[in-house]
């Protein structure tokens, strides 16, 4: 589904990703763990096509297409979704309006029929309810005045409504208490399926108790330095990143 090969990227001329290799097959959930500043968010932004992140070497294939040639909205239409580490506030645009434009934007790009107002309302209400989100939150401006936990939950709501083939979750667990973490994990697990893959970026092992990954990768200084099964996350928790980073050097 996703094949990243020898990816080098700079931000403001500064090299951040330094030859990253990663492949995720359909239906798999991979975790990427790494210390602060190792390039996890940079990877997620490069994948989603944010301005200012320049790929200097290597490439990314997504469902066989060259992902890096596509505009951000085309990547979304191809099935990519990024749950932002820091979700953006949009004053003056309600959550409902945002979701409607997003869903219909995807459908139009894919040549599918748009949902009518009733179908859309029903869909969003049902997904919101499953995540314990009130109607009131749907009517509020996107992320404006939301707590940290509410913002993360809102990212998962968007994912649930848009049903991407490939989701990148960038530290979706940070700032969540244990109850919220369980709700978010349930939301993520509900989307798991043979045709859907995920890249779960996290700093802590805790989330992986709830979203059990097929593979765990350790990112340090812009490269994958170790990969393993889910037990690797536990070893990391015990030994700390220091040992792994040192091995990478």
């Amino acid at each position: 589904m996703l094949e990243i090969e020898n990816l080098h990227a700079t931000v403001g001329g500064k090299p951040i990703l330094n030859g990253l290799d990663l492949a995720v097959a359909p239906g798999e959930v991979h975790a990427v763990m790494g210390p602060n500043g190792s390039g996890k968010s940079t990877l997620s932004y490069v994948l989603s096509g944010r301005d200012g992140y320049e790929v200097t070497e290597g490439g990314v294939l997504f469902k066989g297409r060259n992902l890096l040639d596509l505009e951000p909205e085309e990547r979304a239409a191809a099935g990519l979704f990024l749950a932002f580490q820091y979700p953006v506030e949009i004053p003056g645009v309600t959550n409902m309006t945002f979701l409607k434009h997003a869903l219909n934007g995807l459908k139009v790009q894919r040549g599918e029929e748009e949902l009518d107002a009733m179908q859309f309302l029903k869909l969003v209400r049902q997904k919101a309810k499953a995540l314990g989100m009130s109607d009131d939150m749907l009517k509020r401006a996107v992320n404006v005045g939301f707590s940290g936990g509410e913002k993360k939950r809102n990212e998962i709501l968007q994912m649930a409504v848009l049903e991407p083939a490939f989701a990148v979750l960038d530290e979706t667990d940070s700032g969540l208490d244990i109850d919220a973490l369980k709700i978010v994990a349930d939301g993520v697990n509900a989307l798991r399926g043979p045709e859907r893959s995920m890249l779960v970026i996290t700093h802590y092992q805790r989330l992986l108790d709830y979203i059990v990954p097929d593979r765990v990768h350790v990112l340090a200084a812009g490269r994958i330095v170790t990969s393993g099964g889910k037990e690797l996350a536990l070893r990391l928790e015990d030994e700390g990143y220091g040992a792994f980073a040192a091995r990478a050097a």
């Binding site: 944010r50 505009e71 951000p72 909205e73 990547r75 239409a77 990024l82 506030e89 997003a102 848009l162």
Partner: peptide, 19 residues
């Protein structure tokens, strides 16, 4: 905000209009 909208599938022109 523009990138956030586009990353969700809203084409650029439409995202600008919305903002």
């Amino acid at each position: 905000a523009l990138f956030y909208l586009r990353s969700r599938g809203v084409p650029e022109g439409q995202a600008r209009q919305l903002l």
